[in-house]
Each structure stands twice: as structure tokens, then as C-alpha cells.
Write a protein that binds this DNA or RNA. Structure first.
Lengths: 336, 336
DNA sequence: CTGAAAGCGCTTACAG
DNA sequence: CTGAAAGCGCTTACAG
């Protein structure tokens, strides 16, 4: 019992007493901040080892005014793409001694605000934003937050934070042209609208059609929320519309999985009856049946670069306002 | 400039001064811990609003000796299954006012120790362990840690912490019998060995074969690390072995995806030439082509239940040492 | 090189 | 109902 209580309450002060030194000295050997004579250092280290002392980083954070924690705001849907970006970013951050506090946002606007408060109250040193929001109040709060923030894979024009992403207009334009180049005339589009990235992709699609002299048919544009399930539902809606289409451009690979499943269930052959082009280029895409052709984002780079930028900001230096990374068309058997 | 400096350093003390009350009073309206007269409360609230005061939870954590943070140790591979369990657990924890600090372990033993130190130093209130380790030192450290811990989906017999999981022996036994009941005679097995859950599944497989009067062929048992890629490689190894097998039991759905891809590339028809049975029952399994038959874990329940148990422990109450949840066979077109 | 002491921003008995 | 004051476990000028 006594043992347990000691275990819990053991602090720098107790160590200092046992080692016969001051707390300042213990702190110094713990952090290596200043030279401590070898013998004292050994005494302290011995006591720390003996008592199984575990440093208290919350006390440390308080005086340092630095928590070594990065807040990450990430949408809960579209697991695979965001997970991969997150995973890469986390490695970089971890390497630099930072922890990550993840906030997975369910799509409502209010919850972003809640998470933002949470992160700010917990005094994160910086934030990585992977989720667009259109709430002006959240914008204001972000601007006032006084901490380094990087937008990864998204574009919020009103926010003065560095962005790391692809050119979504161009990527969608290229994807659409890829289908056009294969002779497709009726290209359906599935994605999420009403926010910057989605809308830019919609524009890229429209522009490509226009330049090809094809008319834009709103009935071929169906919303989806980036989950497999929503891809499936969007495809059902397209089939139910009785519209003619020879291909579908799906703005996430996960939705494309749902689209292909529903198409196959409807008796369509891919790509003979229907070509399916995805977006993201998740690792899984190459393992699907048929393998998925997709507009591939440089996922690893987005993660690594946005984290690296954040670290740079954390050191008080500047980074480019927009870092545009290259997308590319990944071929696959789903298009032909 | 003055504005900014105020913003940053604004604390409870400044609010108190502005509102003409004591810091104790501000603290009380902030936390609702004690009755404060309506007029004082309004004054304080007005100042907080006006100044955009953001409470400092690190200071709060220090005095409360409670961080409202849960540490989660999760393997980095096998994203989908663990991600789903994590996602569910997080919802429950978040609902109860806890944050989650995620540590994604790359499979080495030493890194578990690093993460454990990290979590302990940051004074997490409890931990959810989803990653088995066989390092005795880590065991000791865990036992001495004095905080509530729950094992989610894993089984470490030497550790006195509540477990929430399926019966892995039985699940594997049932899966193998399912294939046997369809007349399969040569069942290959792909999974990860050398730790409790994997070994139990191997035993279930062996026992089922034995009871069926079939001999166990070590050459049909191939290791994989639960990623899609490793499933693919394992299948390549099986094909290269020139062994005869009519079915393969793959101990994660993600590996099964890799297995199917490689089998298809080799010209095998699924399930006519080869039946593939997965394990986990991730949401994606129903969208694959062919749809994946799998031994389905109650993923949502594992996540919810383990988090709920942790909350119970956090309140000082006890929970059952082992909570066994039901698995079931999910049929699919990959088996026939 | 080492120590005494102040202070980080809160909460909470303890008085009044 | 409200306030003065101690204390949570550290770090770091400031002296010596």
C-alpha cells in the first residue's frame, strides 16, 4: 500500500531528496539542459531508475507553454485516403517529438467548432486541417488562434494558412479528358459538392466536356459522401434514372468500390459496358477486381509535406502559401 | 500587437480582474462546481465572451491529476479492422468527455515500450490496448502503471487486464469447418503466428482438420502480416509451392483481398478453382468482387464494449475479466 | 557547477 | 455566496 502511494506521488522533489540534490539539478539531468557533474548525475539517474520515476509532462507543458502536441482535424468518412495522409504526417511529426491528437469530424459544421475548442483548450502547438468547413465562425476562431496551421489536401480560400494539395480542377479536368480520349461520350460524375475541393473538381469536369463540345447534363451528376456505401447508392440512382452513360468518374476510390459493386450486381460488365474511373489512388485500388483506374493523388507526399511545413512554422519560419503537388492518371482494368 | 499579447496571456486571473471578482469565482462559473450568484456569473461570462478567453486544460489537468485522455495502442498494419474498432471506441470515449491519444505501433517490440513511456509521461487516465506484445519488460511496466487498461480484441494471458474479444480458437475452428462442410479437402491457411490470437486461430484450424480426419500439412500454412500486400505475397508463395489446395482461409479480410488479386492474376477462378474465406468482416468485404465470405467479428461491439469497460474502470468499478463476443460466418461469393 | 525561489494557470479546502 | 491562499510538478533566471 505504501509502495503504491509512493509510486503515484513520486515526483522530482522526492527524487531530489533521495539523491541529496536540489530539484533544479534533477530537472537538469532529466532534460540535459545544463552541465551537471558526472557524480551527481549518476546519483540522480540511479534514484530515477530505482524508483521507476516517470516524468510528468503535463506539469512540464504548463511551464514551457508548449505541449508538443499537434491537433489533427480529419473527416470521419473516406477512411482510406485520409488515413494514409494522416499516417504519413504522423510519422514525420512523431519523429520530431510531437504527439497527435486526432479529431474525427462527423460532417456537421457545429462539430468542427467543438473540436477546435477542444484542441485550443488543450493548447496544441499547431494544427493540421484535413477537413473543409464553411462556417465563418470557425474561420474567425482559426484566424485568432495564434498557432501554426497547415491545410492538407484541402483549399479554404478565405483562410491565410499554407496549403499542401493537388490542383483539383486540373486533376478532374485530366481525368475527364482521359475518359474522353477513350471515346466516352456520356460521362457520369459522382462526388460531394458545396465545398471548395468538390466544386473545383466539378468545374474541371464541366470544362473538359465543354472543350470537347459535349453538353453538360446535370442528371449525370450525382452526389456522394465519399464512403463506399454512398458510391453504391449514387450508382443505384444513376441506374434508376434510365439515363444513358458509358462511364462514370467517381471522385474517391472508396465510392468507386461501391459503384463497381452495384454495377456488377446490375449485370453490367466493367469495362465493356461501363468504365469506372476513381480518384485518390489508394493502395487498395490496384488490388480490386477489376483493378481500378484512378486519378492518383501523391498521398504520401501530401502527408509528409504538410507535416514538414507545420514543423517549419513551429520553428518560426515561413513556408509557401500553396504547395501544389502532381497528380497522375493511374491506369487500370476498370476503364477500357 | 497589444491585442495579440493579451489574447495569448489571457488567463483566469485577468478575467477575474476585469469582472471584479476573485479567480475562485471565475473558476466556479467556468466549471459550475459551486453556486455563484446570477449577477456575478453574468459579469464573468460577459468578460469571457468579450475577451475570447480559452480555458487552459493543461493547468487544469495538473491540479486535477486527471487529463481526460485515453491512450490507445494500435498496430499500424491491418488498417481497416483496427480502424473500425478504434472508431467505435473513440465515439464512446468522446461522448464521455475523453480525448484519445493514438499510438500506432510498427511491429517491433521496442516501440511499444516507447509509446508506453510516452503515454505514461503524459498521464493518460487509462489505456486501450489493441496490440499484442511479448516483451516481459513491457508487461511489468503495464502492471505497475496503476491506471485502468482494457485489452480490445487481443489476449495477453499474463496480463491482469479485462479483455473484450471473440473466442479466436472457436472462430477459426468454425471457419475451417465451414470450408470442410463444403467438401474442401486441402485448406491453406494464411495468418500471423507467434502471438496469442494468431496461435489460437492456428490451433482451431488444426483441431478442425484433425477431427475431420485430415492430416495437417505445414506447407499449406503461410505467414502474413495482415496487410493486403502480405496476403498477395503469401498467395504467391502458395502458388509457387506447387502444392494442391482447393481453398484458403485467410486470417484477415485485407490479406484476403491480396490473396484474391493474386489468385485471379494467376488465372484461378474464385470460387470455382479456389475458395477464399476471410476473417474480420470489415464493411468492405461485401463490396468486393467476388463478395468475400468471412469469419465476421462483432467489430462495433468490440469497440463499444471495450471503451465502455474502460469508462467503468475509470469510475472505480469492476468489469468481467473476459468478455467474449459472438463471431459468425458471413457468406459470400468467394466460397463455393 | 549547484541551489533557493518564483512562477506557469488553474482548483479547492478553509474562512468569512 | 465569495475570496485569500496553498498547492499541483515542473523549469529557469538569478545568485553564489
Amino acid at each position: 500500500m505504501l509502495e503504491l502511494r509512493k509510486e503515484v506521488s513520486m515526483g522530482i522533489k522526492e527524487i531530489a531528496k533521495e539523491a541529496g540534490v536540489s530539484v533544479a539539478t534533477v530537472s537538469r539531468v532529466l532534460n540535459g539542459t545544463k552541465f551537471v557533474s558526472e557524480d551527481l548525475k549518476q546519483q540522480v539517474l540511479a534514484c530515477i531508475e530505482k524508483e521507476g520515476y516517470v516524468a510528468n509532462h503535463v506539469a512540464r507543458s504548463m511551464v514551457l507553454k508548449k505541449t508538443f502536441t499537434i491537433g489533427l482535424i480529419i473527416p470521419e468518412v473516406s477512411e482510406l485516403y485520409h488515413q494514409m495522409v494522416f499516417s504519413q504526417a504522423e510519422h514525420v511529426l512523431e519523429e520530431a517529438g510531437y504527439k497527435v491528437l486526432v479529431c474525427r469530424v462527423k460532417d456537421t459544421v457545429s462539430s468542427v467548432r467543438v473540436y477546435l475548442d477542444l484542441l485550443l483548450e488543450n493548447r496544441v502547438d499547431g494544427m493540421l486541417l484535413m477537413h473543409e468547413t464553411s462556417n465563418p465562425k470557425v474561420y474567425d476562431q482559426l484566424k485568432k488562434s495564434q498557432i501554426p496551421i497547415v491545410l492538407a489536401g484541402i483549399d479554404i480560400p478565405d483562410l491565410p494558412f499554407p496549403q499542401v494539395r493537388i490542383d483539383d480542377f486540373q486533376a478532374s479536368y485530366d481525368g475527364t479528358n482521359y475518359l474522353l480520349s477513350l471515346g466516352k461520350k456520356h460521362i457520369a460524375l459522382i462526388g460531394g459538392w458545396g465545398y471548395s475541393v468538390g466544386d473545383k473538381r466539378l468545374q474541371g469536369y464541366k470544362t473538359a466536356l465543354e472543350e470537347a463540345g459535349l453538353s453538360f447534363d446535370p442528371a449525370l451528376v450525382v452526389p456522394g459522401n465519399y464512403t463506399v456505401e454512398s458510391g453504391s447508392e449514387a450508382m443505384e440512382r444513376l441506374l434508376a434514372s434510365k439515363k444513358t452513360f458509358d462511364s462514370v468518374f467517381v471522385l474517391s476510390d472508396e465510392m468507386a468500390i461501391g459503384v463497381m459493386r452495384t454495377a456488377l450486381d446490375a449485370g453490367l460488365r466493367i469495362p465493356q459496358d461501363l468504365s469506372v474511373l476513381g480518384f485518390d489512388g489508394i493502395a487498395l485500388s490496384r488490388f480490386l477486381n477489376p483493378t481500378l483506374a484512378t486519378v492518383s493523388q501523391p498521398i504520401i507526399q501530401i502527408g509528409v509535406q504538410s507535416a514538414t511545413h507545420l514543423l517549419t512554422l513551429l520553428q518560426g519560419e515561413k513556408v509557401a502559401p500553396v504547395t501544389l503537388l502532381a497528380h497522375r492518371i493511374q491506369t487500370g482494368d476498370s476503364v477500357g
